[in-house]
Simulated scan of single mutants.
Amino acid sequence: MYKVLISGFYGFDNAGDEAILQSIVSQICNVSRDIDIVVLSACPEKTSSEFKIKSVNRFNFLRIISAIRNCDILISGGGSLFQDRTSISSFWYYSAIILLAFILKKPVFAYAHGIGPIRSRFNKKLLRFVMNRVAKLSVRDQRSKTELQNIGVSREITTTIDPAFLIEPVSREESVKLLEKEMGQSIEGRRRIGFSIRFWEEEGHVDVAGIFAKVCDRVKKELDADVLLIPLHNKEDVTLAENIASLMTEKATIIKEKYTPAQIIGMYGLLDVSVCIRFHGLVFSIMNGTPVVAISYDPKIDSLMDSLGMNKVIRYGQINEDIIYNAIQEEFSRREQISPVIMKKYHEFRELAQKGMNEVISYMKGS
């Protein structure tokens, strides 16, 4: 039996990364059931239960060594694993996993990585060493490829896109049932604006909760639309959503239930406009042709919007009530015109994601 070990930001209740894992696991299982998949996870019991695969505690060094020794290939990715803006320790962790695979003479497929920002000179040298020696390397956007080339990665780099684009959302009927359960009422004939908001530490002076509370109140009063706060990273985003709701004079619905990636994506298809700081909020919106207001705290947001052909991005550090509300109004007014354009790009993205995954499958078959 062929054995695959997967390393990434898994088991942390981040809907985007769980969607990446769901995509990788589903695609591999579609090829053959005679493949043993093991995932390094912060919550191995939960990961095993949700994805019906084996999982190892990502903090148990001895178990990690054993898992690498017993695998036929290590898939590192996808997601923004190699950046030192939010955590140097995470950068070193993912590098160490690959270095252990080198020591144990196991092939590494670095898959669909989002690279950077990388500030430390040492980390740039470390990443150059690692990426020049993996068996195969793909990144999720052109910016990441350029970043690697700029630090001296000289080997072939394939450009793909986020693996989550390969997930099939649940049916509209099921999505409606889920959302009506959350809202406690029928959603027929109602307008809906969704918000996937996060706090960004580097811009700590920004009153995120206060600004979005005012925006959400205006959405409810002036657009006569229901407000949905959709946390994509549990605890952190839920706390922020609760703060926003507590400051509002109007009612908002917070999506607190734990849903599968396919269910979450399906609910994005019921929105008239989506307002996103979370990267995978953008991804899930695009997958449904939902017009989106993108607020960028990281180059990956700009990169995805550039690929979409819509480079109108609001900078996180410059947000205020009027800027965000006016952008929502604009997207709402042209939603019928822009939705087909977004859906066309989504199909292109899905094809690109499939090519990226096919490269992984092809390598596995040949190794």
Rank of each mutant, 00 (worst) to 15 (best):
F12N: 11
G16I: 06
L21V: 08
I24A: 06
V31R: 06
I37S: 00
T47C: 00
S48H: 05
S55T: 09
N57E: 01
R69Y: 13
S76W: 03
L81G: 12
L81K: 09
F82E: 01
A96D: 09
A110H: 08
A112V: 11
N132R: 04
R133K: 15
K136Y: 10
D141N: 14
E156W: 01
E168F: 01
Q185H: 03
I187L: 07
E188D: 10
D207T: 05
K214Y: 03
D217F: 02
D224L: 07
P231F: 02
V238F: 06
I255H: 09
I255A: 08
K258A: 15
K258C: 12
Y259D: 10
L271N: 00
C276G: 03
M287T: 06
P291A: 00
A294P: 07
D298F: 08
K300A: 13
K300N: 07
S303G: 02
D306I: 07
D306G: 05
R315I: 02
R315M: 10
R315F: 03
N320A: 02
I324S: 08
I324R: 10
A327G: 00
R335W: 03
S339Y: 01
P340T: 06
P340V: 08
M343Q: 15
Y346L: 15
K355I: 13
I361Y: 04
Y363P: 02
M364V: 11
